[in-house]
Simulated assay, not measured.
Amino acid sequence: MSTSEDVRPLIPAPRTSPENDPPRAPVRRPRLLPALLVVALALAIAAAGLLVRAHQLGDTPATDNRALVDTAATAQVAGDVSSAVTRIFSYAPDSTAATREAARGLLAGRAARQYAELFGQVEKRAAEQQLTLTTHVVRVAVSRLTDTSARVLLFLDQVAERRGKPPTTAAAQLTVAAERRADRWQIVDITSR
């Protein structure tokens, strides 16, 4: 037999009502999904912004400037323009006709008109004063270059010699606009600086 201590009641203990239950911690629902959506949206906006900025950078005039990336084309235009400037701004009293003829093939547009006006006066003075002018390109820089146009900055030394007088040297600076016609560059505008 068993003792009274081993006896368990057969009737269960009364249940308490929900009002009497101890307070429970609120049920936490995972907030991971909304947080992931916010992060994904932020990344998508940032990526779209980067794509727009990359497109803007790709469409700047600097990317069209071959002088920044094409050394062969830059060297060609620098050489052609330097050679042309040397030829059209160098003459002797007995060779002005040859200089004028060279200018016809090297100049076009506004530059040809400017040169024709200026050189008419130079021819008279060169003969009267027995003036020889020799132009040397000291430095050349191509600031803008496309397939068909270029802007070139030239630094020149010009040596003037008159019969019976010592030579004088003067520095000059020109900005030249050139256009590619056929397979060579022609000067279309000259601005003295």
Score class of each variant (00 low, 15 high):
residue 22 P to M: 12
residue 90 S to K: 08
residue 30 P to F: 07
residue 97 A to G: 09
residue 50 L to V: 14
residue 86 T to S: 11
residue 38 V to S: 08
residue 79 G to I: 00
residue 96 T to R: 05
residue 11 I to E: 08
residue 97 A to H: 05
residue 93 P to N: 08
residue 16 T to M: 07
residue 60 T to F: 01
residue 80 D to C: 01
residue 21 D to E: 15
residue 86 T to W: 10
residue 21 D to T: 13
residue 99 T to D: 03
residue 62 A to R: 15
residue 89 F to D: 04
residue 20 N to D: 12
residue 81 V to W: 00
residue 97 A to E: 10
residue 78 A to D: 00
residue 74 T to H: 08
residue 70 D to P: 09
residue 57 L to R: 12
residue 49 G to E: 09
residue 56 Q to C: 01
residue 71 T to R: 13
residue 25 A to G: 13
residue 79 G to P: 03
residue 15 R to G: 02
residue 55 H to M: 10
residue 20 N to G: 08
residue 81 V to G: 02
residue 98 A to M: 11
residue 54 A to R: 13
residue 46 A to K: 11
residue 48 A to K: 14
residue 57 L to T: 00
residue 53 R to A: 07
residue 92 A to I: 07
residue 82 S to H: 03
residue 21 D to V: 12
residue 20 N to W: 08
residue 23 P to Q: 04
residue 59 D to C: 07
residue 81 V to Q: 00
residue 28 R to P: 07
residue 68 L to S: 07
residue 81 V to N: 00
residue 84 A to P: 04
residue 65 N to E: 03
residue 71 T to S: 13
residue 40 A to W: 04
residue 76 Q to G: 00
residue 39 V to D: 06
residue 78 A to C: 01
residue 41 L to V: 11
residue 17 S to I: 01
residue 15 R to V: 08
residue 89 F to I: 01
residue 10 L to C: 08
residue 63 T to R: 15
residue 59 D to H: 15
residue 14 P to H: 02
residue 99 T to G: 06
residue 11 I to S: 03
residue 90 S to E: 04
residue 98 A to F: 03
residue 37 L to I: 15
residue 89 F to H: 11
residue 80 D to F: 02
residue 79 G to S: 03
residue 23 P to V: 01
residue 34 P to G: 01
residue 72 A to V: 13
residue 68 L to Y: 01
residue 57 L to I: 06
residue 32 L to N: 14
residue 57 L to P: 00
residue 67 A to S: 06
residue 68 L to W: 03
residue 63 T to H: 13
residue 72 A to C: 01
residue 69 V to I: 14
residue 31 R to A: 15
residue 14 P to T: 05
residue 11 I to A: 10
residue 82 S to A: 05
residue 49 G to H: 10
residue 14 P to D: 03
residue 80 D to L: 02
residue 17 S to L: 01
residue 79 G to D: 02
residue 63 T to Y: 05
residue 36 L to G: 02
residue 82 S to Y: 03
residue 18 P to Q: 02
residue 66 R to M: 11
residue 70 D to M: 06
residue 11 I to D: 06
residue 78 A to S: 05
residue 61 P to S: 08
